[in-house]
Simulated scan of single mutants.
Amino acid sequence: MKSSNCLLAVAVVVAGALLSPGSGVAAASGSSEASVASAGTTLDCFRPGFSDKDSRAGRLKVDADLYAGPDFACPKNAHVSPGETVEYMCRRSNDGRYWTMAVKSNGSRGWLSNSALNNGGSTVNC
């Protein structure tokens, strides 16, 4: 194989590895898939799994963002202001912290770090 063909083959293999599901590397911009490598595991930001198991609510202690997945590296869905109330659905653990799936009064939802919530967030596992 000529050296230019070898380089092309390597580029195709590397590009495929970067975009393959579960690779731990975010997909190219504009893609509907994104994943984050976190503490040796891969977290899919858009399909982290949750269900509505918690009937409680809480208020934000600080400015915070709702994330697409339970990780600060996931895309942001919405902003929540201090004092704003959110309803809890359930919690997940990731990278040594708990995250609550929360819903704002306007219907926006996403994951909040439990440390941002006045009562520690959801205590019900997803």
Rank of each mutant, 00 (worst) to 15 (best):
G58K: 06
S4R: 09
G121W: 06
G30F: 01
G121D: 15
L60I: 09
S3N: 00
E84P: 09
A9E: 04
R91K: 15
D63T: 04
G120D: 10
C45H: 02
Y67Q: 07
G83P: 11
P21D: 05
L60P: 11
L19H: 02
R59S: 09
L19T: 04
T123D: 13
D63Q: 11
W99H: 07
M1S: 08
Y98L: 08
G96I: 12
S51P: 04
G120M: 05
T85F: 12
D44L: 10
N106S: 14
V25W: 06
G58N: 03
A78V: 13
L18R: 00
C126H: 02
S81R: 07
A9L: 06
G110N: 04
V10E: 00
L18N: 01
S113D: 14
R47W: 09
C74E: 10
S93P: 08
A78Q: 12
G49S: 12
S20Y: 10
G107Q: 13
S55H: 03
G83F: 00
G120A: 07
M101N: 05
L8H: 00
F46I: 10
S122G: 05
G16H: 01
N106P: 13
A37S: 15
G107P: 15
D54P: 05
S20G: 05
P70G: 07
A64V: 00
S105T: 13
T100W: 00
R92K: 11
Y98R: 09
T100I: 03
E33N: 01
H79E: 08
V103H: 11
S20H: 12
F46R: 12
V80S: 12
G96F: 04
K104M: 15
S51W: 12
Y67F: 15
R56N: 13
P48W: 08
G121K: 01
V14F: 08
N94H: 04
G58P: 05
V62G: 07
N125R: 03
A78C: 13
G49L: 07
A37R: 11
R97H: 02
A102H: 14
V25Q: 06
D71H: 15
G24Y: 05
G22E: 11
R91L: 10
G83S: 14
N118F: 07
N118C: 07
F50N: 03
G121L: 07
D44W: 07
S122Q: 12
K104G: 02
W99T: 04
